[in-house]
Design a protein around this nucleic acid. Structure first.
Lengths: 206, 206
DNA sequence: ACTTAAATTTGGACATTGTCCAAATTTTAT
DNA sequence: ATAAAATTTGGACAATGTCCAAATTTAAGT
């Protein structure tokens, strides 16, 4: 493992445990048996380090979220499950989300792209799920608002969990918000869709 | 206006505009034609100042959220609308939400109370809305998850808006998330409930 | 093997932050 | 008018992220 990778890994670990804002460069350096300016050689500013981590999340998610015309509702929900797990691995980012947006302009512009492409990916998947008979909508604008709802849950569930559900294990937190996600979709399912949705929920208990 | 109130007001203004973390004590003092240590006389630490502001939001919301057995769905939605407006007035708090939770233990314990009492208030209102024939649920657990969904939207809509909807005016942002809230409730409305809900949505346009 | 250049690591400096305190000043009460 | 209390002030402190010149290690060419 290169020095740069060691820094990345230890930073992610400490940031996740204590919060990005509460891990100083000196503390990070101490954990690495390194001097501070050695870190700044690879990552000139703390923002650069955070940005690198955000790229890590982006890559991890890009491996999961795939465009697929033949997607099923079950596959869609399982995809979200994997995204949730990635969010746990990179939770420091999501917990400092708005703060990072305000502070770090590179992350902000980067994120805007990610956000809109995610929204489009969700929209596309919803369209496919309609076409494939898993979902049905009375009103066209309902689709748009379902996408908004899902975006909100996906982006902020871990923040909510940190505040309200910290007594639960990580696994149970994920379950809770996956159920919430499924329930949000449920009103728009067809018979076929609801069957898969219930199957997904049953699978969560096992 | 007392010195303490002047500090409070100016701090809220600057915090809202620039973010809590990006307004230093010296900058705040300069805007007040005051020395830093004069602020710390009234608010020994910045946390104390932030806590005072959080109390302001709490009081503002407590005036709105009332227990009412005869509540209608329209009244419930209008209550949420006022809460949303309060959130705009105190947006610095909600934007730094998770960050403040981690850092400021007084705010954290304070918030946990507020959060659970809010959840209970929403739950109580939903129960009344069921009893009064505006909502109906097939599954009992659906109630619990609707409450969770509403909590999530209420708490994080402004964070989402700051990132994704910053091009919209504040008024339009509020509209967007009120519609989202209404759509979240819609699947569980009775005929009577849906009528009021549509009336509320129509009122938003005017 | 020796020299040179590049890459890496180091210690110390800098400005900025929130916090704190003793002294000075203003206000209030007697 | 005087004493006490409340308020305001300037300056200090440790901690933070950032930066830079010098020292050290590594790699490459002869």
């Amino acid at each position: 493992m290169t020095t740069k990778e060691k820094i990345f890994t230890k930073a992610l670990e400490l940031f996740n445990n204590e919060g990005v804002e509460y891990v100083g460069m000196r503390e990070l350096a101490a954990h690495l048996n390194m001097r501070v300016s050695n870190i700044t050689y690879y990552y000139p500013t703390k923002d650069d380090l955070v940005f690198a981590i955000s790229q890590g999340l982006k890559e991890a998610n890009s491996k999961i979220v795939v465009e697929n015309d033949n997607i099923t509702l079950l596959a869609f929900l399982n995809m979200l499950k994997q995204v949730f797990h990635n969010h746990v691995k990179y939770r420091c980012l999501l917990l400092s989300f708005v703060h990072l947006m305000e502070q770090n302009k590179v992350i902000k512009s980067q994120y805007k792209k990610t956000a809109s492409s995610r929204n489009m990916a969700i929209s596309a998947n919803i369209s496919h799920l309609i076409k494939n008979g898993f979902l049905k909508f009375k009103d066209k604008s309902d689709v748009e608002y379902l996408v908004s709802s899902l975006s909100l849950i996906i982006r902020f569930w871990i923040s909510e969990a940190a505040v309200s559900q910290s007594r639960l294990s990580v696994e149970n937190q994920i379950h809770h918000y996956l159920i919430l996600t499924a329930k949000t979709i449920q009103p728009y399912t067809s018979k076929k869709g609801e069957k898969e949705l219930l199957h997904f929920l049953a699978g969560l208990q096992a």
